[in-house]
Nucleic acid binder design. Structure first.
Lengths: 190, 190
DNA sequence: TGCTTCTGAGTCAAGTTGTCTCATAAGATG
DNA sequence: CATCTTATGAGACAACTTGACTCAGAAGCA
C-alpha cells in the first residue's frame, strides 16, 4: 500500500491483479481465490497471501481496477452531454469485465458490507452527477421534467442495465433518445 | 424426483430446500453447499448428497422453489393489467429471496450454462407476455406506441429492477404510471 | 408383527486454505 | 563491482471441505 518503488512488488501486484481480473470476468467473484489467482498469474501462492491477506481485499482491489462508468463532469447543453454519457455507459456495460463487477456489486444483502458500501457509493455518484445536471437543465429552461427528478436515474439507467445484463442485446441510439424524452420535454438548443 | 410418498423423503427434501433457500437469501449462491445446507436443515450430510448428488442441482432446485414474477395472462384493458403486473413485480423484487435469485441469475457469462438458460427463459417469458399484451393493445387502439415495442420490456422493467436492486428504494405508483406513459399514448378506457 | 427403505453418524482419501520457514535471486546501496 | 536488503517461489504443515462409502437403527408400510 505504501508506495514501494521495488519493481518486484509492482510486477507481482500487476500480474496478480491482471490474473484476478481475468478470473472475475470468466468465472465470477467466487473464482477469485488465492490459489486460482496464483496459478493463473504464474506466481507463488504465498506471494498472493503476502499482498492480500484477506480474500475479500483481493476481490475488492480487483473490482476497483475495473473502471466503472460514472456520469462525469456535466457540461451544458445537458441533453447532448447526457446522450454521450448514456452511450458510454451502454458500451461499457457490454464488456464482460464490467458486467462481472456489476453483478458482483449487487450480489446479496449480507454478502459482506464492503460490497454494499461500494454499490451505494457508485449509485450515489451516478445519481449525484445526474441530479446536478438535470437540476441545472431545469433551471436554465433546457428541460421541463415530466417525472420526479429523483426517479430519473432509474428511468434513464435502468433500461440500459436491463438491456445489457438481462437481454444481452445492444442499446441503440434511438433507445437512448427515447429514454431522454421519457424524463421530460427538452427545448431545442440554438 | 419420482413421486415418492414416503413421508421421510418429503420431510428431508423440504427441510433441505427450505434451509438452502435461507442460505441463498442470506449469503448468496456460493453458500448453498451440501455441508452448510445439511447443518442448517438439521440433517445428515449424506442425506443431502443422496437427494442431490451434484451441488448445481441443489442450487437449481432451490432457485426453482422461489417463485419468480412473470407477467401472466394478459387481460384487456391492457393498461390497468400492466400496472398491476408492474406493482406485483416491484413488490416481489423487494423480497430478499427474489433479489438473491435475480442476482444469481445473471451472475457470470461462463458460470455454468444452466444459469444462462434459466435467465434466457425468464426473459423470454416476460418479453413474450409483454409483447403479446402490447401488440394487442396497439391493435385495439388502446395504445399508440412511441417507442420500438421490442424496447418496451427494458423501458418498463429496467427501472423497476434498478430501483429495487441498486437503489434499494420502493417503487411508487407514480413511477409506474410514468413508465407506462413512456412507451406511448394510451387512450382513455370507457 | 415383520419387512423394507430412508436416515444419521462415522470413516476415508483427495483437495483447499491459511500460515510459516528457508534458500535464492533480484534490486538497492556503496 | 561487491555487499547488504528484501521480495519471491517452493515446500511443509495443520485444519478444514468435499464427495463417496459403510452400517446400525429408526421410521414407515403390509
Amino acid at each position: 500500500m505504501a508506495d514501494s518503488t521495488d519493481p518486484r512488488i509492482t510486477r507481482s501486484r500487476e500480474a496478480i491483479l491482471s490474473a484476478a481480473r481475468e478470473l472475475l470476468r470468466e468465472d465470477g467473484p467466487a473464482a477469485v481465490t488465492h490459489q486460482n489467482v496464483a496459478k493463473r498469474a504464474g506466481v507463488g501462492r504465498a506471494t498472493v497471501y503476502r499482498h492480500w491477506p484477506q480474500p475479500r481485499m483481493l476481490l475488492d482491489d480487483t473490482m476497483a481496477g475495473v473502471r466503472m462508468p460514472f456520469f462525469r463532469d456535466p457540461v451544458p447543453p445537458v441533453r447532448p452531454w447526457l446522450a454521450r454519457q448514456m452511450r458510454t455507459l451502454a458500451d461499457e456495460l457490454a464488456l464482460p469485465e464490467v458486467q462481472a463487477v456489476t453483478a458482483a456489486l449487487f450480489h446479496g444483502p449480507s454478502d459482506e458490507p464492503d460490497a454494499t458500501v461500494r454499490r451505494e457509493q457508485l449509485i450515489a455518484t451516478i445519481s449525484g452527477q445526474l441530479g446536478t445536471a438535470l437540476d441545472s437543465a431545469t433551471r436554465t429552461g433546457e428541460l421541463q421534467p415530466s417525472a420526479d427528478l429523483p426517479d430519473a436515474p432509474a428511468i434513464i439507467i435502468g433500461p440500459l442495465v436491463f438491456r445489457s445484463m438481462f437481454e444481452r442485446r445492444p442499446v441503440t441510439d434511438a433507445m437512448i433518445d427515447h429514454l431522454l424524452d421519457a424524463i421530460g420535454t427538452w427545448t431545442i438548443e440554438r
